[in-house]
């Protein structure tokens, strides 16, 4: 059983438009059986934060190609991408490099 986590989720490069224009979200992830990884976080974001057009942010179980993910200011490719296990106080940043955000 994983304890609740406090995580900072941030959006940039226009991705924030899908989240009411709010860039920084300080969120608390509830405790659950499995540990929290990015895969779960995306599902949680889709359910709780995403305001419109989910297909412009999430495709399949990952982010849409063209959206970069930084975990604590490092490339998520170094950290196992979707399998990275979140720690308390982590910060996750999504930057859209797509034209028009």
């Amino acid at each position: 059983m994983a304890a609740p986590l406090s995580v900072e989720v941030e959006f940039g490069g226009g991705a924030e438009l899908l989240f009411d224009g709010v860039k920084k979200h300080q969120v608390t992830l509830p405790g659950q059986k499995e540990p929290w990884d990015i895969r779960n976080l995306l599902v949680w974001i889709k359910k709780n934060l995403l305001k419109e057009r989910p297909e412009l942010f999430i495709q399949g179980d990952s982010v849409r190609p063209g959206i970069l993910v930084l975990i604590n200011d490092a490339d998520w490719e170094l950290l196992g991408e979707l399998d990275y296990q979140l720690q308390d106080q982590d910060s996750v940043l999504f930057i859209s490099t797509l034209h028009g955000g």
Binding site: G12, L17, E52, R53, H99, G100, G101
Partner: peptide
């Protein structure tokens, strides 16, 4: 950041 002509399209 400024919305472009195709933002959210």
């Amino acid at each position: 950041f400024t919305p472009a002509i195709d933002t959210k399209a």
